[in-house]
Nucleic acid binder design. Structure first.
Lengths: 108, 108
DNA sequence: AAATATACCTTGACAGGTGAGGTATATAAT
DNA sequence: ATTATATACCTCACCTGTCAAGGTATATTT
């Protein structure tokens, strides 16, 4: 079953930060990982992906730098900041809270 | 902690249908119930509430009728349809799916 | 030469949420 | 009497995240 983007909305930033917590990475790679993990059930649309990176950088949660590939397409790498790590933890807490809230509201 | 509306977005319709599944009701009452259940942690903004009712009615998930109060403010009551009941069950299934999906994506 | 994969980007439109404003009736407080 | 509060509904303009559609560029495979 396809899951509506309205339900996933609000988790994009958390998802991206989670991958950057493991290691610096770039858009295309993160999206591939998402597809692998979800058995191709889910992917971020490119426009969503790149606007999310901009947003996170504007918020100071990540920084970006160009990779030094000497072959193939250029890659813009992202790294999570300390502020980004704090934000990630806050997002996780918020998720735990909202799960309970939603559960309490959608069942009779 | 306040929960971002982006995380709750997508559950509004499910929440409203859940209350109408119990009994016919009207906007103000449902919102009061939400506040009670959540210990005033959460409420639907009026604009959100009433646009959601319109949407649900357009989708054929609910129907509306005016109450016959002979005192106090008028009330527009809503009743869930068979289609609405099906939609509610689909929303619940979708939620179960998306919970797993989100969990798998936000934790390393 | 054409197709595919990698890798990035921007623009315009859309949908749901919301602040701010409005209308109306009834009761409680000053 | 007047004001405040509670009940109960509604609409408009704006904001934000998503996304379809388009574009650019390099490298490999057919």
């Amino acid at each position: 079953m396809a899951i509506s983007s309205d339900i996933l909305r609000g988790h994009t930033d958390t998802i991206l930060l989670r991958f950057l917590l493991e290691q610096d990475s770039y858009g295309y790679q993160i999206n591939k990982k998402i597809q692998t993990i979800t058995s191709n059930d889910y992917e971020l649309k490119e426009a969503t992906l790149y606007t999310a990176f901009r947003r996170l950088e504007d918020l100071g949660y990540i920084i970006s730098y160009w990779g030094d590939e000497n072959t193939g397409a250029r890659r813009r790498y992202y790294a999570i900041t300390d502020l980004g790590k704090q934000a990630y933890n806050n997002y996780l807490n918020e998720w735990e809270q909202s799960k309970k809230l939603i559960e309490s509201l959608i069942r009779g």
